[in-house]
């Protein structure tokens, strides 16, 4: 046991990945699983290569990735900024909280697909409904995170600042905001996850571009090679986005956890 425990963690990770890949290769090459359900490694390789070199139905692979990132970026960016601002206001002012809370609480658990058709009727079939959908996914999560962040500021710190003669604006700027930033970032990471998960739904709207649409469209004809290549790509993009946020968090809230 001690011998095993001494092994570095990454070795276990790599061993797990190797086991999955070997099982997959054996199952598909061995003919145990039809290539309609899962591609063989060489089919996946050539499918992925084909996507990279020749693109997919009207756009290059970079074009699909770029459009997806643009939608996620705009929806998440606008949603998180406005959501955080709203959340901060809600945290500071009980009146604004009472005003906005029912709508935020209503929107937060709502599955995005529920209002997909309405968005098409209201905003048409261009980029607007897609970005609005992602925006609505990001907004409530970041609003709630920012509000809770403000509420969880230790009253002792606020009182201390007050007794030192700080104005309301100064307390907000130097005490409340820095304390809430940690939760705001946690909210942002939650929200990028939700936005990213909503991307496929967004690209269902009159799609012909984006990685989410590519996966849906390839799935229509059981093109498992493109589907799996798309899934791997979308997963890597998701991990990269999350890591970017963690990086930003460490730079901006460098004092957190110390």
């Amino acid at each position: 046991m001690r011998y095993l425990r001494a092994r570095p963690q990454w070795l276990v990770t790599i061993a797990a990945i190797i086991v999955v890949v070997v099982t997959w290769a054996a199952a598909t090459w061995g003919g145990l699983v039809s290539d309609l359900l899962l591609p063989t490694p060489d089919e996946l390789w050539s499918g992925g290569l084909d996507l990279m070199l020749n693109g997919y139905k009207g756009y290059s692979l970079g074009g699909h990735i770029g459009l997806s990132l643009l939608r996620v970026g705009l929806g998440f960016g606008i949603g998180t900024i406005l959501g955080t601002l709203l959340g901060l206001l809600m945290g500071v002012s009980p009146t604004i909280d009472a005003l906005a809370a029912p709508f935020i609480e209503f929107l937060r658990p709502l599955p995005q697909l529920a209002y997909l058709v309405l968005l098409i009727v209201w905003f048409g079939i261009g980029e607007t409904p897609k970005i609005v959908l992602l925006f609505l996914a990001a907004l409530p999560v970041s609003a709630v995170a920012a509000r809770d962040g403000v509420r969880n500021v230790s009253p002792a710190r606020v009182l201390a600042a007050k007794s030192l003669g700080a104005s309301r604006a100064q307390i907000f700027r130097h005490v409340v905001l820095p304390s809430a930033l940690g939760e705001i970032f946690i909210g942002a990471r939650l929200s990028i996850g939700i936005v990213y998960a909503t991307l496929i739904a967004a690209e269902m709207i009159a799609g012909s571009s984006g990685i989410g649409w590519l996966i849906l469209d390839a799935g229509r004809f059981l093109r498992s090679d493109y589907v799996v290549a798309g899934i791997l790509l979308i997963a890597v993009m998701g991990i990269a986005l999350d890591r970017l946020l963690i990086l930003a968090q460490h730079r901006i809230v460098h004092w957190a956890g110390r």
Binding site: V117, I120, G124, I125, G126, A206, G207, S208, W213, D217
Partner: peptide, 16 residues
């Protein structure tokens, strides 16, 4: 564009 039939009707009505 990829639209199911009922959404085609909606998009047509909006002149999209």
């Amino acid at each position: 564009l990829d639209l199911p039939p009922e959404q085609i009707v909606a998009a047509w009505a909006r002149k999209d």
